[in-house]
Design a protein around this nucleic acid. Structure first.
Lengths: 204, 204
DNA sequence: GTCTATAAATAGATAGAC
DNA sequence: GTCTATCTATTTATAGAC
C-alpha cells in the first residue's frame, strides 16, 4: 500500500479506537492490529503516540470546518428573522451531524475529560462562536420586543443543552436502553417549539 | 492508622484521581503516593485495581441514594401541582449537587465512555426513575389541559438537557472560560421559566 | 500496618533484515 | 513498505522483612 494511503488508513482506525477507549485506553499495538499491520508501521507513519493523536485532531478540525458551512445558511434565516426555521435548522443540523459521526462526540468528551487540546480548540472555534451568533440574534429579537427580557446566553445554553444532551444520550446510552426513540426531525421540531414558546412574549 | 480508616482514605484519594484522569489514566502508584503510603498498601486494602474501582462505585452508589431523599420532597410538590416549584426544585437540587461534587459527573462520564458498570447502574436506578416520575406528572398535567399535547418524554429530555448540559459546561469548561457566569438559583429559575412557558397552553 | 525489593506483564518506541 | 526481534520504561501485583 502507498505511504499516504496507509497513513490515512491507520489514522482512521486509530480514530475509531481513540473514540471508543480514549487516548490512554488505546494502545499503539491495538491500532496496528486493527489496521492489519505491525506496530512498527504505526511508528513509521507517526513519530509517537502523541503525534498520532494530533493528526486525528487536525483531521477532525477539518471536518469541523465543514460543519461551519451550514452555519452560513443559518445566518440567512437569522437575517430573515425566521425564528422557528433558525432554531429548527440549528438543532437538526447538529443532531444529524452527531448521529452520522458519533466518534466525534466521544473524542470530544474524552478530550475534555483528559484535558487535551481538541476540547479547547472546539470550544474556542465553535462554542464561543455559536454563543456569540445566537446571543446577538436573541438580543436583537429582544430589542424588537419579540423575545422576553432575560439573559440571552441562558437562552442559548438552554437550547444547546436540549440538543447536545439529546445527542449525548443517543451516543452513550439510548442505543441499548430505548428510553426515547424519536427521529431527529421530530426532536428538532419539539426542541424549537418548546424554546420559542418559552421565550416569546405572551402577546405574539 | 487503623485498617478501616486507611482503606477509606485511599478510597477517597483514588476517587479524586479516577475522576480526574479516568480508570486507565490513573496508576496505583499515583494513588498510593497521593495517599502518602507505599503502593503495597493499596494492594493490601484492595485485591487489585478493579476492586478499587468497584469500591468507588459502591461508595458513589450510596451517595446517590442520598440524592433520592430530596426527590421525595419533589413528590409533594407534584402532588400540590406546583409546576414552577417542582421544576425549579428539581433543577436547583441537581445543579447544587453537581457543583458540590464535580467528581461524580466526571466519574460518570468516564464510566459511560469506558463502558463501566457505574454508568449502567446510574442509568437504571436514577435516569429511568426520573423519566418515569416526571413523565407521569407531565401526562397528568396534559390530561388536565394545563400542558400542551406533545410527547412527555421529550419534555423531560428538554429540561434534563438544560440542567445537565449546564452542569457539564460548568464542570468541563466554564471554570476557565467564563462564558456564562450565573448562580444556580438564577439558572434553575430561568430553565424552569423557559420550559414552563414552552409547554403551558397559551390560555394559562 | 508499613515498607523495600522484586517479579511479571504490558506499553511505547527502535534496529535492522527483507 | 513491511516485518520480527528487541530494548526501555512503566504498571500491576507479590514476597518478605520490620
Amino acid at each position: 500500500m502507498a505511504s499516504d494511503e496507509r497513513r490515512v488508513q491507520i489514522l482512521h482506525v486509530a480514530m475509531k479506537l481513540f473514540a471508543e477507549h480514549g487516548f490512554r485506553g488505546t494502545t499503539t499495538k491495538e491500532s496496528a492490529v486493527a489496521a492489519g499491520v505491525s506496530e512498527a508501521m504505526v511508528f513509521r507513519h507517526f513519530a509517537n503516540k502523541d503525534e498520532l493523536y494530533h493528526a486525528i485532531i487536525d483531521h477532525k478540525a477539518c471536518n469541523h470546518a465543514e460543519m461551519k458551512t451550514p452555519l452560513e445558511k443559518l445566518t440567512e434565516l437569522a437575517a430573515a428573522k425566521d425564528d422557528y426555521a433558525l432554531f429548527y435548522g440549528l438543532a437538526l443540523n447538529a443532531l444529524n451531524h452527531h448521529r452520522d459521526d458519533p466518534n466525534f462526540m466521544r473524542l470530544l468528551l474524552y478530550a475534555a475529560l483528559e484535558g487535551h487540546e481538541l476540547a479547547q480548540m472546539f470550544f474556542e472555534n465553535f462554542v464561543v462562536e455559536i454563543y456569540s451568533f445566537l446571543g446577538a440574534y436573541i438580543e436583537e429579537r429582544q430589542r424588537e420586543g419579540v423575545f422576553r427580557q432575560m439573559e440571552p446566553k441562558i437562552i442559548v445554553r438552554s437550547f444547546i443543552g436540549m440538543v447536545m444532551h439529546h445527542s449525548l444520550n443517543n451516543t452513550l446510552w439510548d442505543k441499548e436502553q430505548n428510553l426515547l426513540q424519536v427521529t431527529n426531525e421530530d426532536a428538532a421540531r419539539q426542541f424549537a417549539e418548546i424554546l420559542l414558546n418559552g421565550v416569546l412574549t405572551k402577546n405574539q
